[in-house]
């Protein structure tokens, strides 16, 4: 192969891969947000013509993958800690971090009429097991612990707690009847048709569960990644997010450096 031809082949391969790369965006999504992310991705694809590939996992695992060079353009975490760490160590584009959803915590049981609208069932304590996510790993678990501490039942209920590694597993413990009730995400109750009974916990009882997103270095130059990053902050996406049981930060208050 002549030198010119080789150059030509290399250049066209590069151009093709560039084009493919520029037309699609790969996002890493925390497990609890997969269904909303897919719904948003679908709407975005229709509007923009870009394609979106969604990878999901726990925030901790995705974080470790990103640190070790996983090919993601955008990271939608379940907390604010991991996106901030990525921003600090230069894996994420600085200033691109924002809160895309606020997790809403509920006390839920698949049995209708079991959980009252004030959470008195917690104090009455006539249940076998109470499920929560591991407070060390999962933001929803940390929030559940704060609620029980505020209500001064943490010490008493500790022995009857069972912990899921994440909020999906916690939901499964309750849905399968192995725990009578549990602290789960409102979005999960919505996703299963809102069956059973639940108490939507007043936001004053726990620190906000800020789910934050960041643009990663790989997505910095990509038009598709930038477009999706903007779309996620737009009204369409916010409407979808709210409809699936999450809160959103009010317009104008989307402070990138919101406190923990």
């Amino acid at each position: 192969m002549s030198r010119e031809l080789r150059f030509f082949v290399a250049a066209s391969l590069l151009a093709v891969s560039q084009a493919l790369w520029a037309n699609s965006v790969t996002i890493a999504v925390a497990a609890n947000f997969v269904s909303p992310a897919k719904a948003i991705a679908e709407a975005f694809e229709k509007e923009s013509g870009f394609t979106v590939a969604v990878s999901s996992g726990s925030t901790g695992k995705l974080f470790a993958q990103i640190v070790h060079g996983a090919p993601y353009d955008l990271f939608l975490a379940a907390d604010s800690r991991r996106p901030r760490l990525l921003e600090q160590n230069g894996r994420a584009v600085s200033g691109s971090r924002f809160t895309y959803a606020l997790g809403e915590l509920v006390l839920w049981s698949p049995r209708p009429g079991y959980v009252d609208s004030r959470g008195d069932v917690l104090k009455a304590g006539r249940f076998n097991r109470l499920a929560m996510a591991n407070p060390r790993l999962a933001p929803y678990g940390r929030a559940a612990r704060q609620v029980m501490e505020k209500l001064e039942v943490w010490g008493e209920l500790r022995r009857r707690l069972v912990q899921g590694e994440n909020i999906a597993q916690t939901f499964q413990f309750v849905a399968s009847g192995n725990a009578s009730l549990g602290f789960v995400a409102l979005s999960q109750v919505y996703a299963t048709g809102g069956s059973g009974s639940f108490w939507k916990i007043p936001s004053g009882l726990y620190q906000p569960i800020q789910q934050q997103a960041v643009l990663l270095q790989r997505g910095k130059e990509s038009a598709a990644a930038g477009a999706f990053w903007r779309y996620l902050q737009g009204d369409e996406a916010r409407k979808l997010i709210r409809g699936m049981g999450y809160g959103v930060v009010m317009e104008g208050l989307r402070d990138n450096n919101a406190p923990e």
């Binding site: 726990s58 901790g60 695992k61 974080f63 470790a64 097991r129 499920a131 591991n134 060390r136 790993l137 707690l161 069972v162 912990q163 899921g164 590694e165 597993q169 413990f173």
Partner: peptide, 26 residues
């Protein structure tokens, strides 16, 4: 164990789960 354990110290919090927890918590 992860699926039926419920992560209770001294009862179901075994070594492999402890390692997993440490990794997840960085």
């Amino acid at each position: 164990v992860l699926m039926i354990g419920g992560n209770i110290p001294g009862e179901t919090h075994v070594l492999s789960v402890a390692i997993y927890d440490h990794v997840e918590a960085l």
